[in-house]
């Protein structure tokens, strides 16, 4: 079963090269009364599957809010990282609320809404550690997961005299921070939200290193639908809907860099 589905996804992906993308029409969605939304279920806390197998997470709540905005039922279709764009382009889903990072390469294949979520890499540390920017890292210790985006980011900006401690994974790097072996850490806001739950307010963000915003994606030439989605995201970003969902799953309101991104 699993194999046939994979095979089918692979076939769909290959035929896509030749076949034109199937645009989703707003009117068709409204007539059907349901919108098929593709989302990841293996990407906590954005997309998860709860104990009874139902999709949950930030993306799921956004998907449901989007369907509500459109006045239709949400039908959530689980997709995976590699097959999510093929699912969309072959018309098996109408939209993707699948933590799809907005990149120029992907924008050639799909149309992105304005950002509805984002992952930021930043430097975090004890509230009593005075670090306002990269230059303050001199003479301080910082832990990172070896070869991660934050390793690259920290190594790039750290001044002479920074003690960069590389661990095998985020978990060990976090452990080093929690046990006081390092003063600061390079981490994504997603992982930080998880440790904030354990460590309370002992740590806070010092500065951002880089960020990646995510958009809701539709197949090309679905302009009417995209317009509605953009209207939804704009509204949800300002009226607190996304803040509330973000607070629930990531422990903080929607970050400023997502709200201001176009």
């Amino acid at each position: 079963m699993r194999l046939t589905r994979r095979l089918f996804a692979a076939l769909a992906a290959t035929t896509l090269i030749a076949a034109p993308a199937l645009a989703a029409d707003l009117q068709t969605v409204r007539d059907a009364g349901t919108i098929r939304i593709g989302m990841l279920v293996d990407f906590p806390p954005f997309g998860i599957q709860d104990a009874s197998g139902n999709p949950g997470g930030y993306d799921a709540d956004v998907a449901i809010a989007l369907a509500e905005h459109l006045g239709v039922e949400a039908q959530i279709v689980p997709v995976t990282g590699p097959n999510r764009i093929p699912y969309l382009l072959s018309g098996q889903v109408d939209v993707l609320v699948a933590s799809l990072g907005i990149t120029a390469e992907r924008a050639e294949r799909v149309d992105f809404s304005i950002p509805y979520a984002g992952i930021a890499i930043g430097v975090y540390g004890g509230t009593d550690v005075a670090v306002a920017g990269p230059e303050d890292l001199a003479g301080k210790s910082i832990s990172v997961a070896r070869a991660s985006t934050q390793d690259t980011g920290v190594t790039e900006v750290a001044p002479e005299g920074t003690e960069i401690r590389r661990f095998d994974d985020d978990a060990s790097a976090v452990q080093a921070l929690m046990s006081g072996q390092v003063q600061t850490i390079g981490l994504s806001n997603v992982v930080f939200s998880q440790i904030a739950g354990v460590a309370g307010d002992r740590f806070d963000k010092k500065f951002d290193l880089s960020s990646q915003v995510q958009g809701i994606a539709v197949a090309p030439d679905s302009d009417a639908l995209l317009e509605e989605i953009n209207a939804f995201v704009t509204e949800a970003r300002t009226d607190g809907t996304l803040d509330a969902i973000h607070q629930e799953w990531l422990g903080e309101p929607l970050p400023e860099f997502v709200k201001t991104a176009e």
Partner: peptide, 16 residues
Amino acid sequence: VISANDLAAAGADLNA
């Protein structure tokens, strides 16, 4: 694994 410096760490950093 505890970020001490040695030959294996140098190799891992180079690998990264």
